[in-house]
Design a binder for these strands. Structure first.
Lengths: 343, 343
DNA sequence: GTGAAAGCGCTAACAT
DNA sequence: ATGTTAGCGCTTTCAC
């Protein structure tokens, strides 16, 4: 028993082994143990062996939090998206995750639910984790967000849409994509073309595509009517949208949907109604999801390289973190038109 | 200018304001500032106001890493899944994410790619972040993993399949699900029934369903042939599988697919081939994805409540973290049979 | 190649 | 309700 003198207070909660204990077991100082684990080349081979052995024997797991505090960097990458319900963002995340994980970075995923307030909150939290970089969907943020990020001198990539942003940018030209599809529909001699979007205040990239669409139709001297659904894109919503179009614009010969979910839903619904696609009505989408390529007729759509976008964004960040030169701060991700039999 | 005496070395890299500076600006001690932010009720209203004001004015963002180190807890939840390519896991993650985010926990997502080695590595890393809890897909882990987790006394939930595991469990009874669909097919008087799975060494839950399927057919005195594809489930793979079945087992009258992707792919392909579903061949799936409910004929399948599973798993962890009683360590998530016109 | 000392920014423990 | 002190476990800085 110890003498009952006034002992200094202690508060180590967990009994997990620390680097200090590993060092003791290996007969070296903590800093050497640290080097043996983090920069093995700068340590004598024999020393290294003894440390590794002590690690094994004690079942030591490095406390990454302590390491991050001491080194003021965390190997976290903040990723902020507006929704997890949308397959598009999921695939982007997949590309990011794979690229970052391979380089030893851990993603911190945040979901704003299309709420700029929430976005700001998330960013504050993530900055608190001393992230090494940030990937965020979209170029539109709240004022507060904007200034928070401007003051933050770590790499930032804004993805999905093309444009000058805070730092780096990887995205596609939605206006041009919309125009591209409109041109295709005109080429096929459709003249009563309607655009159908869903919650375009949130999914404002869909309205960018509509702008491109409208512009092309205007050049051809055509009106560009638009229907906006008040719920997010889904097969069900697409089916409902077709009904609306048939009722409100019975003379329509082609529908340009804001995404493949809507378009495919409409296509399948047309079959249930006994309507011929494209004879009675042509249908086009956007995204190039596998689904649209498996239905008959195959959906005409524009393929957006989502996973690639994630990968490219991650590579840009990694380049910055490794002090490699960045040739272009703005990366225009090409899209590809998939012509099916639905138009 | 200071006297050129031997100053103690300093190393504050970033110039971000610290809690200490906030405290100074507010004219209180750091710990009071800390309390004003973390436990506002334990601080005088006026003091709180001054602190908040200082925070605003300095643009202070709390250093969560330092806080975690000091308090030995991080509000991180580790989530480990075998794949991000599979819609099933995405929806589970969605349920987890929403529930945890609402309570101020941050998910740390790890993807094993069905590699147990990788799983072990991820768990080691995540333990290093002092996670408050862990959610992991599946009951099968490597020996090393198992002992690492047994020694870790924080809440763990193993999800997807039902069974006694390390700690808590939220899952469904795959054997019973497979049996259930087999019974349905027998009720509909199909007798040449084949099971089609994909990479069932990885997706071993599909083979559990096959076991249930086989058992029921055996009771009816029927063989239960099985085809296993060597690539993961997808619409394309389902289409290819249908071709294989037609060639290898031409007398088949029903196919029980391991998942909806395969089943729907086969269903759409049958239409391309001019085969009647279910007259020429019946098709059943598993998962209850929206897709299968939008094709004609609608797919007969079993709906697994994936997002709910995520939510329930999160709630179990939260209960543990809040020291609330856990009534059942094992939660059997009910599935629902969706009878379409494809069988 | 190795080590001693001094912090990283915050909070638990123990006062008052 | 507020303050003082002593860490949390690691890495940086500087010295040998």
């Amino acid at each position: 028993m110890e003498a009952p003198s006034s002992e200094p207070r202690k508060r180590r909660g967990s009994d997990k082994p620390t680097l200090k204990q590993v060092a003791e077991a290996a007969g070296v100082s903590p800093i050497t143990a640290s080097r043996a684990l983090n920069t093995p080349d700068r340590v004598n081979k024999e020393t290294r062996r003894r440390v590794t052995e002590a690690v094994e024997q004690l079942g030591y797991v490095p406390n990454l939090i302590a390491g991050s505090l001491a080194s003021a960097s965390s190997r976290f990458i903040a990723v902020i998206v507006p929704s997890l319900a949308n397959a598009v963002f999921i695939e982007v995340i997949k590309g990011l995750q794979e690229t970052f994980e391979a380089k030893g970075y851990q993603i911190l995923l945040g979901n704003t639910d299309y709420d700029l307030q929430r976005e700001h909150q998330l960013i504050r939290t993530f900055l608190g984790w001393s992230c090494s970089g940030l990937v965020i969907a979209g170029l539109r943020h709240s004022k507060a967000c904007q200034s928070l990020l401007e003051a933050w001198n770590k790499p930032i990539v804004e993805i999905m849409e093309l444009g000058k942003g805070l730092d780096l940018n990887v995205g596609l030209d939605h206006r041009e994509a919309g125009a591209c599809m409109a041109r295709h529909l005109l080429d096929r001699h459709y003249r009563s073309i309607i655009y159908v979007g869903a919650c375009m205040d949130r999914d404002y990239r869909a309205s960018m595509r509509y702008e491109g669409h409208k512009e092309i139709l205007a050049k051809a001297g055509l009106e560009a009517p638009m229907i906006e659904l008040d719920r997010l894109g889904s097969l069900e919503a697409g089916a409902a949208a077709l009904d609306m179009v048939l009722e409100q614009y019975p003379r329509t010969d082609a529908i340009h949907f804001a995404n493949d979910d809507l378009a495919t839903g409409a296509l399948l619904h047309a079959q249930r109604l006994g309507l011929g696609v494209p004879q009675d009505i042509a249908i086009a989408g956007f995204n190039g999801l596998p689904l649209g390529q498996q239905v008959t007729p195959r959906l005409t759509t524009i393929h957006s390289p989502r996973e690639t976008m994630g990968r490219l964004a991650a590579e840009q960040i990694l380049r910055r973190l490794n002090d490699e030169p960045i040739t272009e701060k703005q990366v225009n991700v090409a899209f590809r038109t998939l012509i099916g039999e639905s138009t």
